[in-house]
Design a protein around this nucleic acid. Structure first.
Length: 290
DNA sequence: GTCCGGGTGG
DNA sequence: CCACCTGGAC
């Protein structure tokens, strides 16, 4: 079964959320910032930060002129702060080598730090209107259901999914870009993972519905957070983000008392990742303070 | 308390 | 394949 582009595009025209990075006048760099922030992070938490960032760092050179530590502070608690580091690196590369503009070409985008298969195509498509398949897990799930009649996307192999979505794209460039945005929107708001709202779905012939909505076979285990190394890293970083002067090791130790070995491991990994650094006199600070 | 989201890089 | 963060809904 296929997905009729006109039907989906008309639905999108009347149902798309008014997200700030979709408004006119948003540059490719600003779209790139939004896509990096939206990796792993819900729209509601990204939107206010993105608005600040667009004002503060409207072009890559503006961010490149700020220190890494300033960018980490502005990232706040969006999570996965290595994304902020990569975006800062990205800003430097764009300012130096790309005329202060995010490139339009997928292969070039893929060379940038923090930009992978999804983000490269998202920027090419949403910022430049390129006719390329933009495949995130929402899209993989929609295609799995509507086209293949499966409850969920199967293997994480993106290659087959890229080909699937390529085959669905309208020929016209502009319609193709809207179609990709619409597929993502449908997956995010209607064809959701747990409780799809099929009553609100604009697609008249879904293979999964036609097959009687067979259950998936996936064994998913919920990802824990409480007590993980990730949480420990977050606590340690909190201390340094909130302090504008380097802090003593003893102060960091207070941030994670439950398991000293885990705390040491987290601290070490933050140093290795380049998120924090040690001063000559043995104090700790956010990396790249200036 | 439990569930949830889901791309990149190593 | 695994590590990486957080807060809000229920």
């Amino acid at each position: 079964m296929t997905i009729e582009a006109g039907t989906l595009i008309r639905w999108f025209d009347s149902h798309a959320r008014d997200l700030p990075w979709r408004r006119s006048g948003v540059t490719a760099w600003q779209v790139l910032m939004s896509e990096i922030m939206l990796q792993q992070t819900p729209v509601v938490r990204v939107a206010p930060i993105w608005e600040q960032w667009v004002r503060r760092w409207p072009v890559p050179s503006a961010m490149a002129a700020s220190s890494q530590a300033e960018v980490l502070r502005a990232w706040g608690k969006l999570g996965y702060p290595r994304r902020a580091l990569r975006l800062h690196q990205c800003a430097g590369v764009l300012a130096n080598d790309f005329g202060d503009v995010a490139p339009a070409d997928v292969d070039t985008l893929l060379t940038l730090p923090g930009v992978g298969a999804y983000t490269a195509r998202a920027v090419a498509c949403f910022a430049y209107g390129a006719r390329v398949p933009v495949v995130d897990t929402n899209v993989r799930r929609v295609v799995a259901r509507a086209v293949h009649g499966r409850a969920n996307a199967g293997n994480p192999s993106t290659t087959a999914d890229l080909a699937d979505v390529s085959a669905l794209l309208p020929t016209d460039r502009r319609r193709a870009a809207t179609f990709s945005a619409a597929l993502m929107e449908l997956g995010a708001t209607v064809c959701t993972a747990r409780s799809p709202r099929c009553d609100d779905c604009p697609l008249p012939r879904c293979a999964w519905v036609a097959a009687g909505k067979p259950a998936g076979t996936e064994i998913r285990r919920a990802q824990k957070f409480e007590g993980t190394d990730r949480q420990a890293r977050g606590r340690l970083l909190d201390v340094l983000r909130d302090s504008h002067a380097p802090v003593e090791r003893a102060r960091l130790d207070l941030a994670w008392l439950t398991d000293p070995a885990q705390r040491d491991r987290a601290l070490d990994s933050l140093l290795v990742d380049g998120l924090i650094e040690q001063t000559d006199d043995g104090l700790f600070a956010l990396a790249g303070e200036g």
